[in-house]
């Protein structure tokens, strides 16, 4: 499972940080940080919450 971010769409809203703090963070310049680009399968539910909560639909799960 791989997290792919559409960096053109991402606005650094931080919704994914709320949904899955173990996978995402925001830096001091309001840029998204992906903490683990290839998370283990047990993170899938949290990741799917993050995907759905993104107002820009900028997160894609591959695999």
């Amino acid at each position: 499972m791989k997290i792919v971010i559409d960096w053109v769409r991402c606005e650094g809203n931080g919704a994914c940080v709320v949904a899955a703090p173990e996978l995402f963070d925001i830096d001091n310049e309001d840029m998204l940080i992906v903490l683990d680009e290839t998370p283990s399968e047990d993170k899938r539910a949290a990741l799917e919450r993050a995907v759905a909560s993104c107002p820009r639909r900028a997160i894609v799960i591959e695999g």
């Binding site: 650094g12 809203n13 931080g14 940080v17 925001i26 830096d27 001091n28 309001d30």
Partner: peptide, 8 residues
């Protein structure tokens, strides 16, 4: 406005 990390 901005300052997302702080807001979170």
């Amino acid at each position: 406005i901005g300052k997302v990390r702080s807001l979170l």
